[in-house]
Amino acid sequence: MTCRQCLQLLGPYHDGELTDVERVVELEEHLEACPDCSRRFEELKAVSGAARQQAPYYTAPPELARRIAAPRRSATPWRWAAALTAAAAIVAIALLIRQGQNRLSGDLVADHVRSLQARHLFDVASSSRHTVKPWFQGKLDFSPSVPDLSGAGFPLLGGRLDNVGDRPAAALVYMRARHVINVFVFRGPSLERADRLDGFNLAEWSTEGLTYAAVSDLNQPELVQFAHAFRSGSSD
């Protein structure tokens, strides 16, 4: 390696950005043999170290966080607090949705597939919502809607406890023809969307702080129809 090449790579080497092992070996050999380049490397370390240790890191003043979260107009204190909470919630939820969407879909599809493969679809097998809904009592800190959708062509088969990511979830199992529909109910981000992953369709919505996610190999229009029926059935 020439000095010129060495000097060009010193920065990336120092920053851990030189990933080509052969280049790293060549560069280190060169540094051992060449006092000039070695001195330059020491200088580089000193400059970088000085910037890291001596330059001030300006942390945001507390009032800036308040300015960002606060509403534009002045308001009564409780309104102000409510608006601040709402703004923080919006920010947090938006972040969760954007960051978590792909991972969430992956988790949901994996849970769906696992439930089919393990042949563990139900902890409680019943086509009656009056059996399935109370079964979750005491097992979760929320109570999922379990509408009767047999009239719409989606009979209930049962329910079980499951997890979505690291969140406890109720899984409700419905059927359409020979397609199993898992509806995962959990405390999650507020969202409303349809997705498709690995050949499975997903339909998600939120009510009363709970996320409902229907996953199935059923085609998308029918799954959307299911989601509509579920939501209108829940409100009875």
């Binding site: 942390t59 945001a60 003043p61 800036l64 966080a65 960002i68 979260a69 920010v91 938006a94």
Partner: peptide
């Protein structure tokens, strides 16, 4: 999202703009 990265946002703005008031305005905007 902004609040989580507030220090990073402010630090960058403070360095680029050179004073606190402009940096705060820029981060808010």
């Amino acid at each position: 999202m902004v609040l989580r990265n507030l220090d990073a946002a402010y630090n960058l703005a403070r360095w680029l703009l050179g004073n606190d008031a402009d940096a705060q305005d820029a981060v808010q905007e």
